[in-house]
Amino acid sequence: MFKLTPAAAEQVLKAAKQGGTEGMCLRLAAGRKPDGSIDYRMGFDDPTEDDIRIQCEGIEIVMAPEHLPLLDAATLDYVELEPGQFHFIFLNPKDPTYRPPTED
């Protein structure tokens, strides 16, 4: 099952408010690159009849069924990669570039 961390959920809500897309779903998509790694896409959208819907951390997440096989074990997080540089990251054991997080 796809998961969203509390930090990611907080940032998604902030982005929706700033972008005037409050109340819209967070749409996720994923596809394999030629090297086998996964390309992730996300944005705010309205759900369609065929979408898979997930509620996580107060966010409604939608994805087309064809994206579920690549996303079902993933977690979306929002982390500080460099001092003052925050980014959304996908933690996905299905991605060959995945490295489990380590505690500092």
Results as ranks from 00 to 15, higher is better:
80 E>G: 15
33 K>H: 04
65 P>A: 03
21 T>D: 00
72 D>S: 02
38 I>C: 12
37 S>E: 02
73 A>D: 06
83 P>V: 13
49 E>I: 01
35 D>Y: 13
70 L>M: 07
83 P>C: 13
55 Q>E: 07
94 K>F: 10
86 F>E: 05
29 A>D: 12
11 Q>P: 09
64 A>G: 14
1 M>D: 09
37 S>N: 09
24 M>Q: 15
97 T>D: 08
4 L>T: 08
38 I>A: 04
96 P>M: 09
55 Q>K: 00
19 G>Y: 14
81 L>K: 14
54 I>D: 00
77 D>A: 06
29 A>E: 14
59 I>G: 06
100 P>S: 08
100 P>Q: 11
43 G>H: 09
34 P>H: 06
4 L>W: 01
3 K>W: 07
9 A>P: 04
9 A>C: 03
59 I>A: 14
10 E>G: 11
49 E>T: 02
8 A>I: 11
52 I>M: 09
7 A>E: 03
8 A>T: 00
89 I>D: 05
63 M>K: 10
16 A>P: 00
36 G>V: 09
96 P>N: 10
31 G>F: 03
42 M>Q: 15
64 A>T: 09
52 I>T: 11
75 T>I: 03
23 G>D: 02
21 T>N: 11
85 Q>I: 05
98 Y>Q: 03
92 N>I: 07
26 L>K: 13
104 D>C: 02
28 L>N: 04
68 L>D: 12
82 E>T: 13
55 Q>P: 00
62 V>P: 04
69 P>S: 03
11 Q>L: 06
103 E>C: 01
73 A>L: 08
72 D>Q: 08
76 L>Q: 13
86 F>K: 13
86 F>M: 09
11 Q>K: 15
43 G>W: 06
10 E>R: 11
86 F>G: 08
59 I>C: 06
95 D>P: 12
5 T>R: 02
48 T>W: 00
86 F>L: 08
46 D>Q: 01
3 K>A: 08
12 V>D: 03
40 Y>A: 04
24 M>D: 02
9 A>N: 04
86 F>W: 14
83 P>L: 12
71 L>I: 13
7 A>F: 07
21 T>C: 02
21 T>G: 03
39 D>F: 07
11 Q>F: 13
40 Y>D: 14
71 L>A: 10
43 G>C: 06
89 I>K: 03
83 P>T: 14
5 T>A: 04
82 E>G: 08
96 P>K: 10
27 R>M: 07
100 P>I: 10
3 K>F: 12
94 K>E: 12
55 Q>M: 12
21 T>K: 14
20 G>N: 13
75 T>N: 00
42 M>Y: 09
89 I>G: 01
30 A>V: 08
98 Y>G: 11
18 Q>S: 15
14 K>N: 10
93 P>C: 09
43 G>A: 12
14 K>R: 15
59 I>E: 04
74 A>W: 05
104 D>W: 11
55 Q>W: 09
62 V>Y: 02
36 G>S: 03
70 L>Y: 10
52 I>L: 14
50 D>W: 00
42 M>N: 05
50 D>I: 05
87 H>C: 06
22 E>K: 15
31 G>H: 10
25 C>D: 00
67 H>K: 12
5 T>V: 05
11 Q>T: 11
35 D>N: 09
73 A>E: 12
104 D>S: 12
65 P>H: 14
41 R>A: 11
48 T>S: 07
